[in-house]
């Protein structure tokens, strides 16, 4: 395999399929990239979930420290980002499930699903944080 790869590089350049920058960005392309970025962000975001749980299991001192960090400004921004990433990825996942059934591949539906999921996840994020800020004034688990 490695051998075959090296040879391919050395031989006469064959035409390649156009690369990313040749396409004008469409909403479904942006959403596809965002699904991957939010997936990767959530991957590291689970560290926060695990940290809070381990802190709570370690006792009140460690727990209070964790909630203080999360209630700080940087902590709040990270939690806000985590909420949006999760909701964006969640709603995008539903879009993927629809496509997995083989439906919704005409251009109009693709645009509708892409814009629709972006709007729904943004609205849900704002609603949740609006609710939290209205009811408590501060945010920490």
């Amino acid at each position: 395999m490695a051998d075959a790869k090296a040879k391919r590089g050395g031989e006469a350049a064959r035409p390649l399929s156009p690369h990313l920058q040749i396409y004008s960005p469409l909403i479904n392309m942006v959403m596809s990239i965002l699904h991957r970025i939010t997936g990767a962000a959530l991957y590291f975001g689970t560290l926060i979930v695990a940290w809070v749980l381990v802190a709570a299991a370690s006792g009140p001192a460690h727990f209070d420290f964790a909630t203080q960090v999360l209630a700080s400004w940087p902590g709040q921004i990270v939690l806000f980002g985590y909420t949006w990433a999760l909701l964006h990825h969640l709603v995008g996942g539903i879009r993927h499930f629809i496509w997995d059934t083989g439906r919704g591949f005409d251009l109009a539906t693709i645009d509708l699903l892409s814009w629709g999921s972006a709007a729904v996840s943004a609205a849900a994020t704002i609603l949740i944080w609006g609710y939290v800020l209205l009811c408590t004034g501060s945010v920490a688990p």
Partner: peptide, 30 residues
């Protein structure tokens, strides 16, 4: 896909739980 479907339900639960636990002290959390 299977874990994605499970996450769909369980993430909503987790968000609701986190919102409910805002401001909770250690004893309440536990």
């Amino acid at each position: 896909r299977t874990t994605g479907a499970a996450n769909l339900v369980l993430s909503i639960f987790a968000i609701a739980l986190a919102v409910n636990l805002i401001g909770a002290d250690h004893a309440t959390f536990k």
